[in-house]
């Protein structure tokens, strides 16, 4: 479980998150939605322990993320970031292998290799394994980074706009995979995703958290909270949620 209590994060003198309290239970996909600058990415970074809290605290599985050693933290929470500028020239397989870094520290064991191979196949990357990262398309690269985060084998998987550079087919593939691995069973992951793709959120999320100006607007099960009224208010433009072919989607009102 993740418990956030009275969290405030400042960037310089400007508060990005103010006095935010929240709980996440295990399993399922939580979609973080909200306009640009709402503080969604900051929240993910704070949960992953990569941004210091100005006030308040974040607990993952009962442990304060500010106090866990980095190696242990990386076995609890994996974070896919928006910017993925890499100076070194790595292959896809090298990159995914870095997801296991906290376990192998540069000397992968048989178990590590197994997970790496599994990650490559999970995200449809086997054919690209020996390609250089900088020779890939944006969508392929995005998948490689998701695979790296997945390979960390953390109970919590945080993804900051993983759908950004993906075409519709890969959006569907990725979301179905994430959906599958967040169902109860062995190796279940709890997934939190920052998304701007509202139709995808409407289709796959179990829970939504709507954020604006560093605060939570509303949170709850997607079926109850993802409504035309909430979205229109959140994004300050007319939006509606409609049923299409057995699933929800979002359309301009």
């Amino acid at each position: 479980m993740i418990r956030i209590a009275n969290l405030t994060v400042m960037r310089g003198t400007k508060p990005v998150l103010t006095d935010l309290s929240l709980r996440f239970g295990h399993g399922g996909i939580t979609a973080l939605i909200g306009p640009n600058g709402a503080g969604k990415s900051t929240l993910l970074h704070a949960i992953a322990g990569l941004l210091p809290a100005t006030a308040g605290q974040v607990e993952v599985e009962g442990r304060d993320v500010a106090r866990i050693r980095p190696e242990e933290r990386a076995r609890l929470v994996a974070l896919l970031m928006q910017s993925d500028r890499v100076t070194a020239r790595l292959t896809v397989e090298d990159l995914v292998s870095f997801g296991r870094w906290t376990y192998h520290k540069g000397r992968p064991t048989a178990r590590d290799r197994e997970v790496i191979a599994e990650a490559l196949s999970q995200f449809d990357l086997e054919g690209l394994a020996s390609r250089q990262i900088d020779s890939l398309s944006g969508g392929q690269r995005q998948r490689a980074f998701v695979a790296m985060a997945w390979a960390q084998e953390t109970p919590w998987l945080l993804l900051d706009e993983p759908l950004a550079a993906l075409d519709p087919r890969h959006v569907r593939d990725l979301m179905e995979r994430l959906h599958g691995m967040s169902r109860p069973g062995e190796g279940q992951r709890s997934i939190i995703i920052v998304m701007h793709d509202l139709p995808a959120a409407a289709r796959y999320a179990d829970r939504i958290i709507a954020m604006k100006d560093g605060q939570i607007v509303t949170t709850g099960p997607r079926q109850l909270k993802m409504t035309g009224a909430v979205l229109s208010d959140l994004f300050e433009t007319g939006l509606d949620v409609v049923q299409v072919g057995g699933g929800d989607t979002v359309v301009p009102a």
Binding site: L50, P70, E72, R73, A74, R75, F98, W101, G106
Partner: peptide, 22 residues
């Protein structure tokens, strides 16, 4: 230190994400 430097080569943010004490 080489393996840690390898990880640092991913960039500060990513390296911290995978558990490096950057």
């Amino acid at each position: 230190l080489a393996p840690s430097l390898d990880a640092a080569g991913l960039g500060r943010q990513t390296a911290r994400g995978i558990g490096l004490d950057h």
